[in-house]
Design a protein around this nucleic acid. Structure first.
Lengths: 185, 185
DNA sequence: GTCTATAATTTGATAGAC
DNA sequence: GTCTATCAAATTATAGAC
């Protein structure tokens, strides 16, 4: 993880908001520059190409997600509580930003993204699955932990899309409840 | 549903392929014209604006999906078999096109789409939920049928995104198996 | 119904002054 | 580090000939 200065972070802040709403291709460099009150040349100073910006954005998003997660699941916390913290993290992000996960968006756009950005998105998903696989009680449902974890990650991201599209957060909550039921009961 | 002539359908064919891969904004009118070997002005002849094209595309996709579904779930077929036909329809589309559902893509892009296109996407999701809610055995899991249905639709679409991003169809199959387990056992 | 031609705007990106 | 200025290309869309 590279450390970014204040302006670069403001640019990524704007990019995160806009791209979570509309996707990578719908957002222009000038869009971002305007939101930060700089000129587009300054954006290119920090991120020479849009592809560079996309990679930096996903990497920052990835790092922050797990920092936040670690903060709310310190040592000794039991598995069910960790699982709740995990899904709550997504819920909070969905409600406060009124937008789906950055990687749900970029994951959908996958084949149309620069290869390095798509790779960063895969990295985020893989890290999610790895984190979950460690937390899930062994053999709780008779499946491989990695597969069980993938089911939860898939359900979470689909639920964000459906809830946003239908404008009904209850869809998200119902899906999460169903996904976690085997592990919380 | 409007009936479209041959060229209009070819344009929508190209649009469906490209937009399922990269989204609404990443595809240009000229892109589509080139794939159909006409000029961009001809595309505008059939679909005056890109928004019109988007709406027509989603509506055709919607209609075809349920026609196909009806064909493989004729009267008298038991509920579990109908559920399998439903998820198989998504799986087939995922494998043969190597791309997620059009509405998974456009649903993610939702807030960044023309309003009429986003509305058409909502219509597709709502119809999916309605169809499923009728097929699910009553109170099988103690929840409202509409909510149970939404859980399945959300899980399916998230699974397509994750499976495509990770390049692993097993993620899709595992998610579907988990989603349908309560209804098939 | 399809074309040529073009308008008006936006895009990602660069050069070079300060 | 931020700017002005600019480029080359691409974008949606329209007018009007055939």
């Amino acid at each position: 993880m590279v450390t970014l200065n204040a302006t670069a972070n403001l640019i990524l802040d704007a990019a995160e908001i806009r791209m979570r709403q509309s996707g990578f291709n719908a957002v222009s460099i000038r869009d971002l520059a305007d939101h930060v009150s700089v000129k587009s040349a300054s954006v290119h100073y920090y991120f020479p190409t849009k592809e560079d910006l996309g990679v930096a954005l996903v990497e920052r998003y990835h790092a922050r997600f797990f920092e936040q997660l670690q903060a709310s699941t310190s040592d000794g916390v039991p598995a069910p509580q960790r699982l709740r913290a995990f899904t709550e993290s997504y819920r909070r992000s969905l409600v406060t930003a009124d937008a789906i996960c950055l990687c749900a968006m970029l994951g959908a756009e996958g084949p149309g993204l620069p290869a390095s950005v798509a790779a960063a998105v895969r990295g985020f998903f893989a890290a999610n699955i790895e984190w979950l696989a460690k937390v899930l009680p062994a053999n709780s449902e008779g499946g491989e932990p990695q597969q069980e974890a993938a089911v939860i990650v898939a359900g979470l991201h689909g639920a964000m899309i459906l809830a946003t599209s239908l404008g009904d957060i209850a869809v998200f909550d119902a899906t999460v409840a169903r996904l976690l039921r085997p592990y919380l009961a």
